[in-house]
């Protein structure tokens, strides 16, 4: 792949390849900092981090699935479902915050298992499996919440009076609380990203996942149990997506209908922008985090500059194209 004779000629490309995405991020920050008075204050910086926490968590879930050359399209829906389960447990079934946190995580892992089962045993391609799972879960979730959002003091169906449970403070803390001036969702996002980074880069499991993603046949020949690691990847993906869902539910303070859905495409974009960071050229947790941040920065600045959503989408699409060109232009040679 690497063309050493032409090395000098392509130095510029090499620099762009390695640092291009970082440069785009810095350029965006500089631009907004100059154009807007209040962009660079501490509150707004934390605000940006907090606003990307959910996208980043879902993107991290997708990233894990990408390492084995899979693709978890159901991650955003798992997140939405997990927020609904948590809300229903607390508001309708009046259970405490502990089951409302644990059960959605368990459900997330289980859905990961089902995804893995269908991919490994039924041999359905990853993207189709998780696409089907996405539809399935959207429907299951809406059925589970009986078509309506779940929120404090909601009237119960069939004239059941007003729901007496509420979203517990301890649960809401996950999305709305602060620790030493840093929002809790940001702490959760950074911890998960760090753990994912360590897991992927500094453990045997992580290296195996990358090997399977790089060349499944080669990984198989070197004695790696591919099915086992695929299962692990989808379980972790489901878990992280469910964590994202808890943050989502806590931030909204309710279990909305299909709340996770709209995060899917942003999360996919963040994961792919992540490929291009430092020229790594493969899915990685740190890059995904930066990808999510880049989109958060753009959204934040553009909202302050009064851009409507469709022009935000133009900018987002353009940045994605730039970042992806940097990755794939190099890979082609």
């Amino acid at each position: 792949m690497k063309n050493k004779t032409k090395k000098k000629q392509f130095d510029l490309f090499k620099i762009l390849y390695k640092y291009g995405t970082i440069m785009v991020i810095i350029a965006a920050i500089l631009f907004f900092a100059i154009a807007l008075d209040n962009f660079f204050n501490f509150n707004n910086i934390t605000n940006i981090f907090r606003s990307v926490s959910i996208v980043a968590l879902i993107a991290l879930a997708i990233t894990i699935s990408l390492t084995i050359d899979g693709f978890d399209l159901s991650a955003a829906t798992i997140a939405g479902f997990s927020s609904v389960i948590a809300a229903k447990f607390m508001v309708v079934w009046e259970l405490g915050p502990v089951p409302a946190i644990i059960i959605p995580l368990v459900v997330g892992v289980l859905i990961g298992c089902i995804n893995a089962f269908l991919i490994i045993k039924m041999n359905i391609p990853d993207m189709l499996t998780t696409l089907s799972m996405m539809f399935l879960l959207t429907g299951v979730s809406i059925t589970f919440q009986q078509g309506s959002a779940i929120y404090n003091f909601m009237p119960l169906p069939n004239n059941g009076g007003i729901a007496s449970g509420t979203m517990h403070e301890a649960f809401l803390y996950l999305g709305q609380g602060e620790l030493f001036g840093i929002p809790v969702p940001v702490i959760i996002m950074l911890s998960v990203a760090t753990l994912a980074h360590i897991f992927l880069n500094h453990t045997k499991y992580g290296r195996y996942l990358y090997m399977i993603g790089g060349n499944q046949e080669a990984a198989k020949l070197s004695g790696i149990s591919i099915n086992k690691y695929k299962l692990i990847a989808y379980m972790i993906s489901g878990l992280i997506a469910a964590i994202g869902g808890l943050v989502l539910g806590a931030r909204l303070g309710s279990g909305e209908v299909d709340a996770g859905g709209p995060y899917l495409m942003d999360a996919v974009a963040a994961s792919f922008i992540g490929f291009s960071i430092f020229g790594i050229g493969k899915p990685n947790a740190f890059g995904t985090l930066l990808g999510a941040l880049l989109m958060g920065i753009l959204l934040n600045g553009l909202v302050m500059m009064n851009f409507p959503y469709y022009s935000q989408d133009i900018v987002k699409g353009f940045v994605l194209i730039v970042a992806l060109s940097l990755t794939y232009y190099k890979q082609m040679r």
């Binding site: 707004n44 605000n47 931030r251 909305e256 909202v303 959503y309």
Partner: peptide, 26 residues
């Protein structure tokens, strides 16, 4: 002072983030 338009696709979380941005900066 500002117009927020986030489209029709599940706008609640987006509206929340957008207004948070404005409230923290003005």
């Amino acid at each position: 002072v500002n117009t927020i338009d986030m489209g029709t696709d599940n706008p609640m979380p987006k509206a929340q983030s957008a207004l948070e941005t404005l409230l923290t900066t003005r």
